[in-house]
Structure formats: structure tokens, C-alpha cells
Design a binder for these strands. Sequence first.
DNA 1: AGGCTCATGTAACCGGTTACATGATTAT
DNA 2: ATAATCATGTAACCGGTTACATGAGCCT
Lengths: 180, 180
Amino acid sequence: MSLAHGILGFLNYGTMTGYDLSKAFDSSLQYFWHAQNSQIYQELSKLEKKGLVTHQLIIQTDKPNKKLYSITEKGHEEFLKWLAKGNDSVYFKSSFLMKVFFSGNKSVEDNIKMFNSFIDDCNKYLSSMKSIDNSIEFYSKEVTEEMPLYWNFTADFGFRYIHMCIDWAESCIKRLEELQ
Amino acid sequence: MSLAHGILGFLNYGTMTGYDLSKAFDSSLQYFWHAQNSQIYQELSKLEKKGLVTHQLIIQTDKPNKKLYSITEKGHEEFLKWLAKGNDSVYFKSSFLMKVFFSGNKSVEDNIKMFNSFIDDCNKYLSSMKSIDNSIEFYSKEVTEEMPLYWNFTADFGFRYIHMCIDWAESCIKRLEELQ
DNA sequence: AGGCTCATGTAACCGGTTACATGATTAT
DNA sequence: ATAATCATGTAACCGGTTACATGAGCCT
């Protein structure tokens, strides 16, 4: 039930269409909460049924018509309730770690390759994350000044996480090379 | 489709019941791939239909009867295929980070509390992870010597991850305290 | 008497993914 | 011409979660 709260969080900043939300997710939350646009439209319908958001149809001539969504008072309350609740877990799933767990069934050589390709992926991820800083700068103009601080916290987490991953993979490679 | 491969990975070490698998997940993979026992039993049926595992009914008098599962040749091939394939992503979902992202809507004081309670959770997680080392030692006797190396890699990842989380949360708290 | 271990499942639900479907306008 | 942008959705599927259901034997 977190996509719903992400949507409420964005609509709390101002009105948006499903399309806007999709872009907002892509340029900020995408690194720790990716959302398909198909899911966003469905979730908006659900939220509207629950009375947490409403929409207004905007007729456009040069572009397709659109539905501008806004958060309701009830939605605002739900959002604050979610924010205040400390129910999130440190736990995270990783199929890659599961693969590492069973990698004793592969050759040391293959595993060194696996870790190297993991490091490559991390570096790609790192460079794609650099666009976050631009996004933060861009959106900073539209909100109160304390918001960007927290956006930077999440971006900082991302950078620390990736660097940790790279360090770890390098240490694994080092130990494997000692075996050869 | 990763629980299936985890099951195949365990059965590759030797025969097990659904109950054994549930315990095996709990004492090793649980930190990056938690599995409900209800799901394990369902997945075993699916794997059997696909011909990747088979079972033998063991009649017991002092304990309930059980189904001993073993991996088939086809299952072994599928397992190796999965191991060799480099399709896992660095990406991970975190509802906590999403909450942080929107936490500019809460007071600085509340957010310091939030980060402190996150650090507490990390420490609890850390102490629960200490049982991993015991598990690794216990199971090490039953398998070839290279396996535990990879088990330790995953445990090492867990420790680095939690320490990174704690460092990050502390740095966030520090920045928030500077504002007060 | 109460709780743990062993042991196996079903049913309902739900959040998320993948694939499919449409179509005008604008910029290169 | 072609691709990108704007804009909205449906349908099928699937992996995973939660809750429920049962029951013998053993230990304290």
C-alpha cells in the first residue's frame, strides 16, 4: 500500500495528472519505488473511490484532454497518518544475494565475472542517479524550502548504498582471487 | 520467480521436506528473501508439476508423515541456468525511503525521532543477524568447502548494509540538529 | 495445563508486472 | 519521415501475504 501514499504525497504539493505523476515518480522516487503508469491510473481510480482524491476534466485543443487530480481533506489526513506511522522495515529482498548464496555451485572464475558485472551495473546506476540532483534543483523552486533537504537525504542514501555495493563486491573479488 | 530457484538451490544440496525448507530459509536466506511456509508448499507443487522436483512419502509413527523432496535432472539444469544468468538488478524498493522523501511535511523533531527509531531497528536487525554465523557453521559440515565462502559473502553484505544505514541515519540526524 | 516441535496444507486477497491499445501534436 | 511528448487506459497474470485449519507427540 505504498504507491497510494506516494501519489498522495505528490498531490499534497499540488494538482497533477496521471501523466505528471508518472514523470514525478520517474525523476525522483524511481530509485527506491518504481511505478508503472498503468498502475498509477488504476491507483488514482481507487483513491478516488475512497474519497482521498478528486479530479477535474481539463479540455484541451492542442493536446489530449486530461484529468487534473487534487488531494481531498480526507486524503491529506490519510497522508499525514501514514507519514507519522513507523511501520517500515529495514528488510529488503534481493534475488542477486540469493544467487550469490548459491554460487558455490559455479566456478570461481564465473563468480569473479559475476561480481565484475555487478560492479558495472552499480556504476551505470550511479551515473543515472546523477540526474537526481538536477531534478531536486528543478522541483526545489516549486515547494517550501525544507522539502529538498529530505529529497537530498534519500539521494544520499542511494549514493552510499551503491558505494557500499561496489566496496563489497570488490572485497568478494579479492577473496576469490586469493583462492586462484 | 526466485523462491522457486531458492528451493531448487537447497534441494541441490540434498533431499528436504517443505518443513525443512521453511527452516532453511529462516536460518539463512531470510535476510534477503523471506518465504512463508504456505508459499513453499504451493511452490513445491508447482515445481513438481513442471518436473523439476519429485517427492517420496515417508511414513512415520512417532511424528506426522512427511514428503521428502528431491531435485530432478531437469530441475538441476534449470537451477544451473538460473545461476549462470545475470539478470538481477541493483534496484531495491523501500517504503521507508519514500517516507523520508515526503518527511518535509513533518516537524524536524518528529523526523529526528523517526531516524532514531530507524537506528534502533537496524541494531535489532544486527543482533538478529548474529545467528547467521552459527547457522553457517552448522550447515558447513554438510556441504563441500566452497559453499560457506559464498554464504559469508551474503552475511557480509548484510552487515555492511546495516552499518551503512546507521551511518546514513546518523548523518541525517546531525543535519537536522544543526537546523534547530 | 500449556507451549513447542513436527508436519502439511487451502482460500481469499492484493499489489505489482507485462502486454496491449489508441492517437493527436510538435520537434528534428 | 521519424521520434518524442502528451495523455489515458484495460486485461491477464503472477508472486507473495494473511488468515485459517488440523493434529499428534514431547517437554516443563
